[in-house]
Amino acid sequence: MAHTATILLLGSGELGREFVISAKRLGARVIACDAYDNAPAMQLADGREVFSMLDGAALRAVAEKHRPDYIVPEIEAIRTEVLAELEAEGFNVVPSARATQLTMNRDAIRDLAAGELGLATSRYRYAESLAEVSEAAAFTGFPCVIKPVMSSSGKGQSKVDGPDGLAGAWDYAVAGMRGDRARVIVEQFVDFDYEITLLTVRHAGKDGAGGITFCPPIGHR
């Protein structure tokens, strides 16, 4: 059977597994990648590649080997600058290499929101050592939240109520971070009532033009 497209899936966890199920229903051929063999998405995919996606040379080699129609990043620990290079060479990164670079790095997305777009955010500073964490906390005030600039599922994140908790929070952040950057964001704690998830879908329109659809917001208390 001819496939509708070949997809290189970068990350093969449980979310990746759900993606493979949906992609194969649409007739796609999926090559699932991760740093360990027999990951959940690999169990259903058409092929697999086992390598660290922080290894830029290995990432490029796999992309050039399979020449996929789409490259879909699913995990945070990816050498995103290589994705940008591949996109510039004609590979289709979904949704885009820039979107991947921004959303997988908390400092990049914060710089975009607060710096380039001028949006109101909580007070924050970045830190790459315990001494810098202490300086940042003095700026934000207590309580504050300390997060690795790259992590997933809340790993490495702490709410700190006073100076005595900074050392433990720094160690916890370093232990829980993904990637290879020992960097955290220290930000003012915001006592909010609820948060909102707004799912967005980029798609081709009926006339062939692209579009973006915003799903109804989901509130979380």
Rank of each mutant, 00 (worst) to 15 (best):
G162C: 08
H66Q: 10
V30R: 04
I78E: 03
L86F: 11
S158I: 07
T140C: 15
V133Q: 08
G16E: 11
Y70L: 14
S12I: 02
P73M: 09
Y36S: 10
V160D: 04
R48G: 03
S134D: 12
A99M: 14
N38C: 07
A138R: 14
R67C: 08
E85W: 05
L117V: 12
A99Y: 08
S151M: 05
I21F: 04
P148I: 05
I109Y: 10
V30F: 04
D180H: 12
G13N: 05
T200N: 06
N92W: 12
V145T: 07
A99I: 15
G90E: 06
M177W: 00
D171M: 07
A127P: 00
G176F: 08
A23N: 03
A138F: 00
G154T: 05
E135R: 13
V190G: 05
V149Q: 00
R125I: 08
R60V: 09
I196W: 03
A23R: 03
Y36R: 14
E81S: 15
R29E: 03
I212S: 07
V186H: 01
I7K: 01
G27N: 04
L199S: 10
T197W: 00
K65Y: 00
Q101A: 15
E89T: 06
G141P: 08
L26Q: 11
A113E: 11
M150S: 14
T213N: 02
G210M: 06
A88E: 13
E81N: 14
A209Q: 13
V160P: 07
L199V: 13
A173S: 15
A84I: 01
R181I: 10
P216C: 09
L83C: 11
G56F: 06
